[in-house]
Structures are given as C-alpha cells and as structure tokens.
Computed example of a mutant assay.
Amino acid sequence: MNRICTICARGGSKGVKNKNIKLLLGKPLIAHTILQAKKSGLFDVIAVSSDSKEILAAANQYGADILVERPPELATDQAAKLPVIQHCLSLAEKKTGRSFDVIVDMDATSPLRLIDDIAQSVQLFEESPDADNLITGAPSRRSPYFNLVEINHEGYASLSKKLDKVIVRRQDAPECYDMNASIYIWRRETLLNSTTVFQEKTLLYEMSEERSIDIDSELDFEFVSFLATKRGGLS
C-alpha cells in the first residue's frame, strides 16, 4: 500500500510569530514532525506544503522529499485545511508520477506525538477497510452532557447536549474527546471528494492529554518545550 505523509505549515501565525520554524530543542518546530515521519519508516514520500520560503528551506534541510509551494489563496487565515492537503497530494502525485492509497497528514504544531502513535493509528485505519478516515484526540476535560454549556437566544445557559436521563456524575456521561490536530488519515478517494473532516465512518485514535497539545500560543509553546525536555526529545 502506497502511503504519503503531508505536513502543511503556513508562514503566517498570529499566536506565535514564525512558530513553524521557531526553535524547539535546537531544531525548527517543523523538523520534529519530518523526523518523526522519517523514523516511522511508514511513508514512501514526505511532502511539505507552505507559502513560506523559510519553512520550505527548513523542510528541505531536515529531509522532506517534496516541497510544495502553496498558492496565496490557500495561505490565508480563512483557508480551510482540506483544500491544502488536497493541493499538496495533487502536486506530490504529479511530481512523483504515482498515486498514493493512504494519506497521513501530520500537523507540525502538535509535535508531542510518539512514533508509536503514528504506527498504531495507521495500523488501526488500514485494518478497518470500511473506515473513510481517521482523526486523533484526547479524552475531553469537559462534557457537553455534564459541564459544557451554551447560551441561548434569551441569554440563558443550558447543557450543550441533553440526554433522556439526568447525568449527576461526569463519569456516567458518554465518552467525549478533544481533537488534537496531531494525525489525520485518509483514503485517497475520500480525501479528494471531501469538503469536511467528518465522514460517515470516521475513526478516532486516542492519545493522552500529555501528547495532545497543539501549539497556538506562546504558553502552549512553553508547555510543549517543558514536556519535550522532560521526555528527553521528540524524534
């Protein structure tokens, strides 16, 4: 089965300036995800998509196989994720002259994943032939059935989701997860024909909260730096 790893990293960043090339443990942030993909031994090709020459240069330095220049319309704050992955796949297939059965997209801003997470999520997906795609997530701290609320049009709060029976303990509520933006896996045809991440048959691979921080602020970066140092490295 042919597999490609896509890593899509935009140059602009509001929360952390130049975060995809900010140094973490002495390497640009994006380098850790590239090295994880390489060390997993799972991919025929690793493709990095970016609108930033600096990010693409770093990706080249750390061993990405294909560099994809992202067009401006896919590099705005409003640009959705799926068209970016679709564009990256299309360009990678043109450059290699081959088609990929499984696309594994990994976010550079979620570097605390383990190589085992990559391997086990791919295994789960490929051993589930009816699944359309796979996402990763961690058990949620808040439950829409117990302590996650919404404000209605009259300004009053109520639970986001209600059950027929009243939940008095969070442990009795249905299990819920926070998406952690770490790993997304797609079958080629599903990806190319999709406009949303959630499909009829979307699998979830569970990761611990400690491995699920997605860097969106300077504080997130500090947390990731602390945990990565404590662990003794990332890749």
Rank of each mutant, 00 (worst) to 15 (best):
T109Y: 02
T109N: 11
P111Y: 05
R113T: 07
L114P: 03
I115D: 08
D116E: 13
D116S: 15
D116C: 10
D117I: 02
D117K: 01
D117H: 13
I118S: 00
A119S: 14
A119V: 13
A119K: 14
A119M: 09
S121C: 11
S121E: 07
S121L: 03
V122H: 00
L124D: 08
L124E: 10
L124M: 15
F125C: 06
E126N: 01
E126Q: 05
E126S: 04
E127T: 12
S128F: 06
D130F: 00
A131Y: 09
D132M: 05
N133M: 05
L134F: 07
I135C: 04
T136R: 01
T136M: 03
S140D: 05
S140W: 12
S140L: 04
R141T: 10
R142N: 13
S143T: 10
S143I: 11
S143Y: 01
S143W: 02
P144V: 05
Y145P: 03
F146T: 07
F146L: 07
V149L: 12
E150N: 10
E150S: 10
E150D: 13
E150A: 13
I151E: 12
N152I: 05
H153M: 12
E154W: 12
G155Y: 15
A157S: 10
S158A: 14
L159N: 02
S160K: 15
K161F: 11
K161Y: 14
K161I: 10
D164R: 08
K165D: 09
I167R: 08
V168N: 05
V168E: 09
R169F: 14
Q171D: 11
E175K: 15
C176E: 03
D178R: 00
M179V: 11
A181H: 13
I183G: 06
Y184L: 01
Y184S: 10
Y184E: 07
Y184M: 00
I185W: 09
E189H: 15
T190K: 12
